[in-house]
Simulated assay, not measured.
Amino acid sequence: MPMEDKGQEQEKETLLDQQEILLQLQDVEKKLADLKARWPFHSVQPRMVAEREDLEEERDRLLGILKS
């Protein structure tokens, strides 16, 4: 395979990877919005706090990948 073809193929893979990450990021953002909508004013359950932390960490990880 000529070098040009390899470069184009790598570009396509990178774009596909970015699209996949963007889709994952949208999913995480949607889950975060849903969780925040269900967030009670008082007596937040520990599992909800843990879920929010996990989603925020995942969002930050995905954003970090996109920036690099």
Rank of each mutant, 00 (worst) to 15 (best):
P40R: 12
D27R: 11
E9T: 09
T14Q: 06
L66K: 00
G64C: 07
M48E: 07
G7L: 08
L55V: 12
R52L: 10
Q19I: 04
G7Q: 13
R59M: 14
E4A: 14
D34P: 01
R38F: 02
L35C: 11
Q10Y: 08
R61Q: 07
G7A: 11
F41E: 09
Q8R: 15
L16T: 06
M48Y: 00
R47H: 08
P46C: 07
E57Q: 10
K31N: 11
H42P: 04
D60K: 15
P46L: 08
V44R: 11
K36M: 09
E20L: 12
M1H: 06
L62Y: 05
L25V: 03
L35E: 04
E9M: 15
Q26V: 05
D60Q: 14
L15E: 05
E20H: 07
E58H: 03
D34F: 11
E51Q: 13
I65E: 09
E9P: 00
L25K: 02
F41N: 10
E58R: 02
H42T: 12
M1G: 01
G64T: 03
L23E: 04
R59K: 15
Q19E: 09
V28I: 15
R38C: 02
E29Q: 15
Q24H: 07
K31Q: 15
S68V: 06
P40T: 03
L62C: 04
K36D: 08
K6W: 06
V44E: 03
V28P: 01
